[in-house]
């Protein structure tokens, strides 16, 4: 396959970026999208011994496991996060999804909360900050409890597992017209709120995580559901509704925390 690639090049976080066009030929339709980019980078290295122009340096892009579970490979390909296929990450995208002679536009995730580090690399530590705000359960140390000592409804276990499939890739933010992180946050809130271990802290958790999400500059959900459509793990929009309900209950039906001293 012969392809024209239009790639966003940006030297660093402070400089202004631009699109640079590259030609590449002899790509196998069986190779993955990231392998195609590897081949293009090798070609750039071969052709430009010690490049002065950064546009002739290899393109930086996020990638890690290359088997669809780490969530690193975030590329906005031809107007869609993770490219023209459903429920996959960029590393799972094959070149057979494109035609010989195609022009492919590759952009980084665009969001105020995900600043560009270089080329196609974005800083997604905003997601880590949301998790740090409450996306965990407190566990007492001590003896190992018996297996299955806590009863969990089968349906809840399934729903929690579906929500926990979120790999935090940020495709929901990239796809959303408002760069909203509601699908990510709601998946994390849901996976814990649905299980008895997480239920205890669910009221504080949802408020803390939403507050952090708002502070980090993500947009608001306008229920366009592009996130659900583009999610590589098909996380359902019902998680967003669950989070909204959790939030309403947390705000309206829980008592204000007061310090109680034993015996007083």
């Amino acid at each position: 396959m012969d392809l024209t690639l239009k790639i966003w090049r940006q030297k660093n976080a402070k400089t202004k970026g631009e699109f640079v066009t590259y030609q590449i030929s002899g790509i196998s339709p069986d190779c993955s999208f990231l392998e195609m980019l590897d081949q293009m980078n090798e070609k750039l290295i071969r052709e430009n011994d010690e490049p002065v122009d950064f546009r002739k340096c290899p393109v930086s892009f996020d990638h890690d496991c290359r088997e669809g579970i780490c969530g690193m490979c975030g590329l906005f390909i031809n107007g869609r996060p993770h490219g023209p296929d459903e429920a996959i990450t960029t590393c799972q995208l094959h070149m057979r999804k494109f035609k010989d002679g195609d022009t492919i536009v590759i952009e980084p995730w665009r969001s105020r909360a995900f600043p560009i580090i270089k080329d196609l690399l974005v800083d997604r530590s905003a997601f880590d900050k949301i998790i740090q705000a409450g996306g965990y359960v407190n566990v007492n140390t001590g003896g190992v409890p018996d297996a299955n000592s806590i009863l969990i409804k089968k349906n809840n276990a399934e729903l929690a597992m579906d929500a926990a499939a979120c790999i935090g890739c940020g495709a929901c933010v990239a796809a959303c017209a408002n760069a909203s992180a509601m699908l990510f946050v709601s998946a994390k809130v849901s996976q814990l709120a649905l299980l008895p271990q997480g239920k205890v802290e669910s009221k504080e958790r949802v408020q803390k995580m939403v507050r952090t999400m708002d502070k980090l500059g993500f947009g608001n959900c306008s229920n366009t559901y592009a996130c659900e459509f583009e999610c590589p793990k098909s996380v359902n929009r019902s998680n967003i509704a669950r989070m909204n309900l959790e939030f309403i209950i947390a705000k309206t039906c829980t008592e204000k925390e007061t310090v109680r001293i034993a015996g007083v």
Binding site: K6, W8, F19, F76, N78, G79, R80, P81, P84, V105, E107, R110, S111, R112, A113, A175, A177, N178, A179, S180, G217, F218, G219, N220, S222, N223, T224, Y225, A226, F229, E230
Partner: peptide, 29 residues
Amino acid sequence: VLTLKNWASRPVGYYKSNKSNTSFFSKYM
């Protein structure tokens, strides 16, 4: 207020407009 925040959340837009399958009218509320 919500829309202004939404617009501010993506200061630099995409070159290729988003092709994701969405509820059509939701984008133009």
